[in-house]
Amino acid sequence: MTKKKILVVDDEREIVTNLCMALEMKGYEALTAFDGQEALDVARKEMPDLVLLDIVMPKLNGYQVCRELKKSETTKSIPILMLTAKTQESDVFWGKETGADEYIKKPFDLADLLERIGVFLEKKEQNKK
């Protein structure tokens, strides 16, 4: 069975490295992007199984990336989990509005995050069938 691909997007490199380490340990293949534009490029090219997306980033912000991915037929079924230090209701609102599947506050619980990723991937697998 091929490894599931997860795209990790954050302009804080150390968050990306640490998340990748955890994902790889769990047997996933981790892809990275450090700004919104790169995230779009990698997502379109690699077609990941799931995206972990920061919000405040250079070039394109997380909402914009999310909206773009959800707009396109080819990428709209990829689950997007927003990770952010912002916590205002209005941010959650925008996240939902742009089509994010889940909204996770920083600092998140890694074990909890990995569990949610697992649930999303399973759901996606079932939808396929």
Partner: peptide
Amino acid sequence: TPLTIMKVGLEN
């Protein structure tokens, strides 16, 4: 932000 990095690092 740094708090998040510390937490993920330690969790790893």
